[in-house]
Every structure is written in structure tokens, then in C-alpha cells.
């Protein structure tokens, strides 16, 4: 194939989506393991086993795979779950999210929600004190190169990320902004709001969805929370995800209406 390495990456992105998304999450996961190996191993074993088991059962029933896509939400749940959550609680929330958010629709990629955001919301709903949290600053910094890789490959729509940032700025007010929150916001927007299967697919729809996520993060955030309220973040992503198909349908309907006017 012709073109530079970025062009080749973008052409291969659809077929290598799972590998690229796992590669993007590998550095922060590695750091997490290094920081607290004793606490992380049991949780990793629980969430990965639960995710693969769900995917395997549905793949057997339907006679179709692949099943490795579910590892992406599994790793995201490990990164953003509260440290006090038990392994079985994470496994339960993730299993429910994978089944309800993806497998009942035909598998990962056929649903319309970010499975990781759904899992964290289900965790917060099912076990109220367990709200999702941002990982440590060092883990966030380790996640940034992967986020950049996803944006370069086109697996995280840049319009959603940019519009999300604009939405946060507009909702907060430029004077209230804390520059230290830029990296956590970026990670939230790239890995959750710009989920390739959860975000709208039309250009205007992606702008609208990003603005909605950014605005809702600020609107839903608890005033007493210092830094980024991750609960508000995942709820905002989930809400915007629910509206994504409607936003796309609206954009297409308006375009059809304009075409109709132009061509009689």
C-alpha cells in the first residue's frame, strides 16, 4: 500500500481496531500493575475472565466470533474503577454491561453505547458508594500516547474530542478552567466519549455529541468534587451515547430535507 506510516495506520485501523485499542491501553495498565501488583492481579483475573466468558458463551450460541473486543472495556473498567470495589463487583457490572450493551445486539460493534461507560455506571448504580474515579496522575500521563495513537488512527473521532473540550470550556467559563485537568479530560473524551462504536458517525453529529458530553460533564459534576468528577463523566458519556443514533438520524434528515429543497 502506498502512503506514509500514518496513512498506512489509518487504512489498517478498522481491521486492527482491537489490537490498536489494546496497545493504547497497555502502558497505563502496565504502570498500574507495577504500582500495586498484589491488588491489581485478582481484579484483572476477575474482569478478564468475566468478559471473555460472556463473549465466549454468546459466540458459541451464535456460532460467530471474534471475542477479544471485550478486553477493551475490561481494561478500561480496571483503570477507572474505585480501588475499594471488590473483584466480583467489577466482574458483575462488566458482565451486565457487555451483555446488555453489546452481546444482545449481536456483539461488540453492533451496539450503540460505550460498554466501559455502561459498566462503570452499572457499578455506581448497583453499589452506590462505588463511584468511578480517575487513576493517578502518572497513569493518566501513560495513557496519553495511546490516546494520541487512537486519534491518529481515526479510532477516536477528533471532532468528538475537540467538541468535548469546547463544551467543557463553554460550560465552565474560561476563567474557571484548571489546566491540570486537561489530561484527565482528554483521557475521558478519547476512551469513553469518542468510542468508535458509541459516537455518532456523521460529522455534525460528532460535533453535537462532543458538545453535549463536555457540557454534561460540567453540569452533572458535584460542586464539592475537586478535579474531574468521573461519575459525571461516565454518566455524560452514557447520556450522549443514548442520543447518538437520534443525533445521526436528525443530521441525515436535515441533509435529506436540504437535498429535497435543492433538487425539488
Amino acid at each position: 500500500m502506498r502512503g506514509g506510516p500514518v496513512m498506512r495506520l489509518r487504512r489498517r485501523a478498522a481491521r486492527d481496531a482491537v489490537a490498536l485499542r489494546l496497545i493504547a491501553l497497555a502502558p497505563p495498565m502496565a504502570l498500574l500493575f507495577l504500582q500495586a501488583p498484589g491488588a491489581v492481579w485478582p481484579r484483572a483475573l476477575a474482569v478478564v475472565t468475566a468478559a471473555l466468558a460472556c463473549a465466549f458463551v454468546f459466540a458459541e450460541i451464535r456460532g460467530r466470533g471474534p471475542i477479544l473486543e471485550v478486553l477493551v472495556p475490561a481494561l478500561l473498567v480496571m483503570l477507572f474503577a474505585p480501588p475499594e470495589a471488590a473483584s466480583w463487583q467489577l466482574a458483575l457490572a462488566l458482565s451486565l454491561a457487555i451483555v446488555l450493551g453489546a452481546l444482545v445486539f449481536g456483539g461488540a460493534g453492533f451496539g450503540f453505547l460505550s460498554i466501559a461507560a455502561l459498566a462503570l455506571v452499572l457499578l455506581a448504580f448497583s453499589f452506590p458508594p462505588l463511584a468511578p474515579v480517575m487513576p493517578s496522575q502518572s497513569v493518566i500521563w501513560f495513557a496519553l500516547p495511546g490516546g494520541l495513537l487512537l486519534m491518529l488512527a481515526g479510532l477516536a473521532p477528533w471532532r468528538v474530542v475537540l467538541a468535548g473540550a469546547v463544551g467543557v470550556v463553554l460550560a465552565t467559563g474560561p476563567s474557571e478552567l484548571d489546566p491540570a485537568l486537561a489530561a484527565p479530560f482528554a483521557i475521558l473524551l478519547i476512551h469513553f466519549a469518542a468510542d468508535p462504536f458509541g459516537a455518532p458517525v456523521t460529522g455534525p453529529g460528532q460535533w453535537l455529541s462532543g458538545l453535549m458530553v463536555g457540557g454534561l460533564i460540567v453540569l452533572l459534576g458535584a460542586p464539592e468534587t475537586r478535579g474531574l468528577d468521573m461519575s459525571a463523566g461516565v454518566f455524560a458519556v452514557l447520556l450522549a451515547g443514548l442520543f447518538a443514533p437520534l443525533v445521526d438520524a436528525g443530521v441525515i434528515a436535515i441533509a435529506d430535507w436540504r437535498d429535497g429543497l435543492r433538487h425539488g
Binding site: 489509518r10 481496531a17 456483539g107 460493534g109 479510532l155 468508535p196
Partner: peptide, 12 residues
């Protein structure tokens, strides 16, 4: 083969 999901990337 059964069709898989469409990954909506800009290259597509």
C-alpha cells in the same frame, strides 16, 4: 461468513 461490525474510521 457472517458479516462483522463496521468500524467507522475516516479511512473507510
Amino acid at each position: 461468513q457472517v458479516l462483522g461490525p463496521i468500524v467507522p474510521v475516516p479511512a473507510l
